[in-house]
Design a protein around this nucleic acid. Sequence first.
DNA 1: TTTTAAATTTAAGCTAGCTTAAATTTTAAT
DNA 2: ATTAAAATTTAAGCTAGCTTAAATTTAAAA
Lengths: 220, 220
Amino acid sequence: MQNISKEDYLSIIYKNKDAKGMIKANTIAEKLNVSNAAVTDMFKKLSNEGYIDYEPYKGISLTEFGETFAKNMVRRHRIWEVFLNQIVGLPWDKVHDEANRLEHSSSDELINRMEEMLDFPEFDPHGDPIPSKEGKLPRQKNYIALADLPEGESGKVVRVNDFDEKFLNYISEIGIALNEIIVVEEKRNFDNSLKIRVRENPWNITKKLAENIFIEVKKK
Amino acid sequence: MQNISKEDYLSIIYKNKDAKGMIKANTIAEKLNVSNAAVTDMFKKLSNEGYIDYEPYKGISLTEFGETFAKNMVRRHRIWEVFLNQIVGLPWDKVHDEANRLEHSSSDELINRMEEMLDFPEFDPHGDPIPSKEGKLPRQKNYIALADLPEGESGKVVRVNDFDEKFLNYISEIGIALNEIIVVEEKRNFDNSLKIRVRENPWNITKKLAENIFIEVKKK
DNA sequence: TTTTAAATTTAAGCTAGCTTAAATTTTAAT
DNA sequence: ATTAAAATTTAAGCTAGCTTAAATTTAAAA
């Protein structure tokens, strides 16, 4: 038997925990599309097996064991994404869903072998960092959401959110990709939309969209 | 939820059915390492869902729908095997187990894409035929078990059984691979062992081993 | 501070696959 | 043709994850 859900819960926890390492049951329920009761249920199991610290009504956090496990799931996912993109040639809007399934069904040996084939990539096709075999994360560039870039400024795309295939599909169509330069030409207060320029072409995008694209900022 | 086992049952049925398309519950239970009761249970479900024809105590056979489905599972499995072997570089004794898991977790689009990358292979790394997208099987060469080759004769390996990693590992070590020529130098009646020659080297192997290696024979 | 709303947990119960033990049916052997 | 052995099915019950509805706890607002 496979334990798929346990693995899914753990990576969702890892990817969505706050600065203090805490996460609310509600968040998990929404992300995984299950009931709150299912989350509580899983909390008990994960806690029994030593993946998380759990006190009823108090919220949870990963134990060191849980963190290691979860980070490895994220590693598997992102290596699959790079592999599917680079080697198999799938577009970046298709790799997430496919990797979501494959990550549960491959041995660590296969993951390591793929990582080697890819020459130890540091980021996945959406700009997310890939933990190394030892659990180390690459140094991430500083970034802010495109929505927060001031009018008139521009910057390089270093990360995009990967949870929605249609979103990725749309931004590809208008020419947005990692390392592409985006200029914010106008920010319209009345509807919060933005006028941007990508490779000489102007586009109007919603704030919502701009909140899921991240632009490198120089460190001070 | 994933339905892994349903898929496993169906490919085992497809791969082990006899000339009349029938298969015994017992065989399935052994191959999948589950109880007979579990098999009966699954028969009811598969029958309800239209994959098999089932009458209690009478044995089962695949419906056309079931056959199509099962053949596609076998296709997925074998394309993964070729891919892991050719592209990822895994040895032939490692690909079966890995493919066994991956076959349940990949979209048909991915399988088709891999098939294209591999230039539409007809056989997997163990010499088993790969059904096409349309369900067509390549023309298989005629073969007999090495154990049945008469003393003094020789022939080319065109297929080996893939169910045991250690078996594959061992025969690789003594130089046996697809398309390799094997000479049967002596068949010993007292213990049924065989003396064979592979790439100039002599080896003694058991009958059991020789029953899992298949040698091309010319058609009459 | 009391009340109300939101978040979380408990309770009861579902499905897919699995098990062992007992009952039944088929097949093989006398 | 009868009996014994083998194969199959039924019955009862387990686990992992899931659900809805009701109960409880915590947080927020009046």
